[in-house]
């Protein structure tokens, strides 16, 4: 008896059945994935923020769904396996939601993250001629100007003209 028969024959009666598809089905899914890849590369070329977010990240979610469902066969896998993966993803999300203020904000009540503040504010002033997208830093404008004198983190490698 081959190992294949042994392994599959050894499955218990309550084991999740895995869908068997013909090769053409998988090739069709691959073609859809490639088409989505083309859209995700060409979409951001329009340089419209909403289109970039939708085509790059929205399509990434769709591609991930297609791979998980059709290639990893999660649609026919036991429910607890899907729940296991979703719980892990949820825990990571919760953790980052809880810690995000520490990373994304550079100052608050009685605290200032000097290195983070100096790293990004001068760059924006130099490249954009203003504190673009930094409304949350308004109260620290004086500190921004002071930070502008200091070299930005990694700035020497990139001349100001290269900013996008």
């Amino acid at each position: 008896m081959s190992s294949h028969t042994e392994s599959h024959g050894a499955h218990s009666p309550n084991e999740a059945p895995h869908a068997t598809h013909e090769d053409a089905h998988y090739i069709k899914i691959w073609a859809i994935l490639v088409a989505l890849l083309v859209v995700s590369v060409t979409g951001p070329m329009l340089e419209i923020r909403v289109v970039t977010l939708l085509t790059a990240f929205g399509i990434a979610v769709v591609k991930a769904f297609l791979v998980a469902k059709h290639f990893m066969h999660l649609d026919t896998e036991k429910k607890f396996v899907v729940q296991l993966l979703v719980v892990c993803l949820g825990l990571v999300f919760l953790f980052f939601m809880a810690t995000s203020p520490d990373i994304m904000k550079h100052f608050g009540m009685n605290w200032v993250n000097e290195s983070a503040k100096n790293a990004n504010i001068p760059e924006k002033i130099v490249h954009h001629g203003g504190v673009e997208g930094a409304a949350e830093h308004a109260e620290g404008a004086a500190e921004h100007a002071e930070g502008a004198a200091a070299p930005a983190e990694g700035a020497p490698a990139h001349p100001a003209g290269e900013a996008h």
Partner: peptide, 13 residues
Amino acid sequence: LLHRLGHPEWATY
């Protein structure tokens, strides 16, 4: 992702 959102200048890099 969080650092990227907190550091807009990373888009340059």
